[in-house]
Design a binder for these strands. Structure first.
Length: 631
DNA sequence: CGACACAGAC
């Protein structure tokens, strides 16, 4: 729209003389343009194109402009390029439309080339094309070219234009050139809240949280985008609770959330396992008529799946009309994570039948489902079909699933051979998965071999040290286990402290090992002691070999007794309605002793306990767990 | 005008 006004006010010298917007042909032109603007896909565009050629309108730059825009919008960038190439004297507006289209399709460096070509063809730039090429530089992180455009823009006098300035700020901000960004900002004639938002976003991109929040406080009128930038930035920097705090403040200040905002907040909810707040967002979406587009839909499905409410996730999935690959991906992964392997596989097959093209992520999901569900043959079939029928090269993640698949059912030797024949180098996760299989299926030699590879190559994390140590102590080799522990201490790796959280009354309560910070700590520990007593009565006795430190047994017992998940569960028991489901999120893997204990707790308290650990869900009910004790 | 989700194995 705005381009049009511009076009009719200042026609470019390259527009043929008969193309004035208000000439007698303009009725025809308007009709064609209206038709084009209604197009939703490329199949609707082609007949219009042939009509245009038949009517001799193919050189009408207004029409070509609309063609370029609509083709790009319909994801038909090849067609955009073809039409542009057939244009005899493209003017600056057509160049702009093409560059925008290329950027939209992710072909930003091509967009930059087109701009250079335009300059070489002596076409004089304007504010619009400068903004567009700067956008290409921003997305492509092409600082050098961006600076060149900046210099050129100064010479030609385009730098007083607001959108050029905003793009320049973005260019420098994304490239960490904060001094240059501020310089552009300081040259702006009046305080500009959008420019401040650009700065906030840039600081958050580079993990400068306090700088970002200082600028945020300076913004006079914080609109939806400004709040969203802040919330999203906090989420991306791992500050979920902080993000939710900002979201609550946003509500108090009565600023409406839009689709983007809720996607960010839902992401925070799913990472925290904050089901109650997630549900609240869902009803917010419905109450305020936000569109459940594929971003929002995926975010909802993901939130419910990662909060263990797989039925709710499925309900959302079913109500969505237009599903994209990402929608299926979220749902398939959700089923896989929640131990619903068959549903995952079924959905995968249905999506293929419906003609949706799977991506590599789809296969990660469905292969995970196969490995968690012990569907060995089917998993292999999919792995083959991925390469043959869908032409997707397996990545390390896919190989990882297969190693897990074989290891899980005890085909450890085959897993070993498979690792040796992979087209990629095995990483510590592959060897870790293999080692876990060796531990569970009591294959010492192969496991010992894997453990040595893990320790010698140094490509590892703290979890791997713990795993190797546990492997040795499960064979009674306590000296080796201790040695590994001491190696971990020597290494510079910082051990991530185990943390379990539970949401009660819309608030997330976090517990660390032996935590005594909670205001209700007395009641929590009282409950813990009570549980211990009742569990002993049920025949529970702590598995001491999981704690392979060199300490006395009773101390080991105490160390186990205060694992963070136990505290979180006890808090859940005292602060929620009897018989209601308890949901716990843990940042690390649950240890096997806690796993045993939680099974019993679910039985004696008659509660469902849903626990998300680092990798997957455990649904505990009446003394057993959905993972069938393999995780 | 500035902001966007889904990603495995230990």
């Amino acid at each position: 729209m705005s381009c049009f006004t511009q076009v009719s006010i200042t026609p470019s010298i390259h527009i043929p003389p008969n193309s004035n917007y208000n000439n007698p042909k303009s009725h025809h032109r308007k009709q064609t343009i209206t038709l084009l603007q209604k197009c939703k896909n490329v199949n609707q565009i082609t007949p219009i194109h042939s009509n245009v050629i038949k009517n001799g309108q193919q050189h009408d730059q207004f029409i070509i402009f609309e063609f370029l825009r609509v083709c790009s919008k319909c994801d038909a960038i090849d067609y955009t390029l073809k039409i542009f190439q057939q244009t005899q004297y493209p003017n600056v507006f057509l160049y702009t439309a093409l560059i925008d289209g290329l950027v939209f399709s992710g072909l930003y460096s091509h967009g930059i080339r087109i701009y250079v070509e335009m300059i070489e063809n002596f076409i004089f730039p304007d504010n619009f094309v400068i903004s567009s090429v700067l956008k290409a530089c921003v997305i492509g992180l092409d600082l050098r070219m961006g600076r060149e455009v900046h210099t050129q823009a100064i010479k030609l006098g385009f730098c007083s234009n607001r959108s050029v300035r905003l793009k320049l700020m973005e260019l420098y901000g994304k490239n960490r050139e904060f001094e240059d960004m501020k310089r552009v900002f300081d040259e702006m004639p009046e305080r500009d809240d959008v420019a401040l938002t650009v700065m906030i976003s840039s600081y958050l991109d580079h993990e400068l949280l306090s700088r970002a929040s200082n600028i945020f406080d300076m913004v006079k009128v914080k609109d939806t985008v400004c709040w969203t930038v802040m919330i999203d930035g906090l989420v991306r920097n791992g500050k979920m609770n902080k993000a939710l705090e900002y979201f609550r403040q946003m509500q108090r200040e009565a600023v409406r959330a839009n689709e983007v905002t809720v996607v960010c907040v839902l992401s925070a909810c799913s990472q925290l396992g904050a089901l109650e707040l997630g549900k609240w967002i869902h009803s917010y979406i419905e109450n305020y008529d936000l569109k459940i587009n594929h971003f929002v839909g995926s975010a909802l499905i993901n939130m419910y799946s990662r909060c263990g409410s797989i039925d709710e996730a499925e309900r959302v999935f079913k109500t969505m009309k237009d599903r994209e690959v990402s929608t299926y991906n979220s749902m398939i992964m959700g089923f896989a994570l929640n131990g619903k392997s068959l549903n995952a596989v079924e959905l995968f097959q249905r999506m293929i039948e419906e003609g949706t093209k799977p991506t590599n992520i789809t296969f990660v999901g469905v292969l995970t489902a196969c490995s968690h569900g012990g569907l060995v043959d089917f998993g292999f079939e999919i792995f083959q079909s991925m390469q043959i029928d869908h032409c997707i090269e397996p990545q390390i993640e896919h190989y990882g699933c297969i190693v897990d698949l074989l290891g899980r059912v005890g085909r450890v030797k085959e897993a070993y051979k498979f690792i040796q024949n992979m087209k990629v180098m095995p990483d510590y996760i592959i060897w870790g998965s293999f080692l876990n299989a060796c531990k569970i299926h009591k294959k010492f030699e192969l496991g010992d071999h894997a453990a040595k590879i893990l320790l010698n190559h140094g490509y590892t994390d703290t979890g791997t040290y713990v795993l190797v140590s546990n492997f040795y102590s499960s064979f009674g080799k306590y000296e080796e286990a201790l040695l590994v522990r001491s190696k971990l201490k020597e290494s510079d790796l910082e051990k991530e402290p185990g943390c379990s959280s539970i949401e009660v009354n819309n608030e997330i309560h976090e517990f660390f090992l032996g935590d005594i910070r909670h205001p209700q700590k007395k009641e929590i520990y009282k409950k813990l002691v009570e549980m211990e007593k009742r569990l002993r009565f049920e025949g529970y006795y702590p598995q001491l070999d999981v704690v392979s430190q060199d300490i006395m047994d009773h101390e080991k017992e105490r160390a186990l007794a205060i694992h963070s998940e136990r505290l979180a569960i006890c808090y859940g028991l005292i602060s929620t309605e009897p018989l209601s489901t308890i949901r716990i999120v843990k940042n690390l893997r649950v240890c096997s002793d806690c796993h045993t204990m939680i099974k019993l707790v679910s039985k004696i308290t008659n509660r469902k306990i849903i626990m998300r650990d680092r990798n997957r869900f455990h649904h505990f009910e009446n003394g057993s767990c959905s993972c069938a004790d393999y995780w």
